[in-house]
């Protein structure tokens, strides 16, 4: 019963916040939310990581999730994307009203979920171009679209590469093999641009980036942002949020959102750390 009460409190807080959010609130009244996470519980090998998590994301919004190490940030990203290492024990995740939790990872990708990985995998032996052909046409097939031929694909790649200032040489290199940290993250954003997701999750995309690479990545995201998609930006540090400005900031501690606020909350966290909030949970 105690945890139930806690949830209610948080939901109320969230709602209050939304009302304060003027213009977007009006849109909210008329549109279905894009990504809806309700009471999400997930575990790995019998260890519960997410303990009743709620987030509502509407089209056009950027949400940031911050929190100390081990709070469940990356688990949340993995669960939304469908990583089977994690078992969802309760709750629901819907994308535009469709139940994601019943879908395979590739179906979720087809529906428009994109995860920019914290540690993108290196796959020697397949060029980035060939991989993207397979990826884009798989997603197009799922969406009932005709596959792109070689010329169309190349044109699309050339266009999207510019967003993250990549050059053509990337395309013939094996996927992420020997890429620097910055190149890997730019490659993630490039793939995001190719796949045009509805909901993109950026899992600590800022880790391992110098300031130039950070700006390039953020610039790519800002250009991809539009009224129909939404971004969930998971980060440990505030600095990324100087460049990708969130509409909402949620603080994840021990598998639950313990506080939500506007972009100023990120600055407060930068200054005060997480300890005051961890204390907070204990007393709720």
């Amino acid at each position: 019963m105690k945890s139930f009460t806690k949830l209610q409190t948080l939901n109320t807080e969230h709602r209050t916040l939304n009302i304060e959010h003027g213009t977007q609130n009006i849109k909210r009244e008329s549109t279905m939310s894009l990504l809806e996470i309700k009471n999400l519980h997930a575990q790995i090998e019998d260890k519960e990581i997410l303990k009743g998590l709620n987030i509502t994301m509407n089209p056009g919004e950027i949400h940031a999730i911050m929190g100390p190490n081990g709070s469940g940030k990356s688990t949340l990203a993995s669960v939304i994307a469908g990583n089977e290492d994690f078992e969802v024990t309760d709750g629901e995740v819907t994308l535009a009203g469709k139940d994601l939790l019943d879908m395979d990872p590739e179906e979720r990708a087809g529906e428009g979920v994109f995860l920019a990985f914290q540690y993108p995998v290196e796959i020697p032996g397949v060029s980035t171009a060939n991989f993207l052909k397979a990826s884009v046409n798989s997603v197009r097939k799922y969406r009932g679209q005709e596959p792109l031929d070689g010329v169309q694909m190349m044109k699309l790649m050339n266009e999207k590469m510019k967003l993250v200032e990549m050059n053509k040489a990337f395309l013939s290199r094996s996927i992420n093999e020997g890429f620097s940290g910055g190149e890997k993250k730019r490659n993630e954003i490039f793939q995001m641009a190719m796949l045009e997701p509805k909901v993109a999750i950026l899992d600590e995309t800022d880790s391992g980036l110098d300031i130039d690479a950070l700006k390039i990545v953020a610039n790519g995201v800002n250009q991809l942002r539009n009224e129909d998609n939404a971004f969930l930006v998971i980060t440990h540090y505030q600095r990324l949020l100087d460049y990708i400005v969130p509409d909402f900031v949620h603080v994840l501690v021990d598998g639950k959102i313990v506080k939500s606020g506007g972009k100023e909350l990120a600055l407060e966290l930068e200054e005060k750390g997480y300890d005051w909030l961890i204390g907070d949970t204990a007393t709720v």
């Binding site: 994307a81 469908g82 990583n83 089977e84 395979d104 990872p105 590739e106 979720r108 990708a109 087809g110 994109f114 995860l115 990985f117 993108p120 995998v121 796959i123 020697p124 032996g125 397949v126 991989f131 397979a134 990826s135 884009v136 798989s138 997603v139 799922y142 094996s174 793939q191 796949l195």
Partner: peptide, 22 residues
């Protein structure tokens, strides 16, 4: 790597095939 490829839209069979090919 399989999960990475599935996240990019490839079915599990296709992902296995691509990794084998690679």
């Amino acid at each position: 790597a399989l999960f990475y490829l599935q996240q990019r839209g490839l079915s599990l069979d296709d992902a296995r095939g691509l990794l084998t090919y690679a």
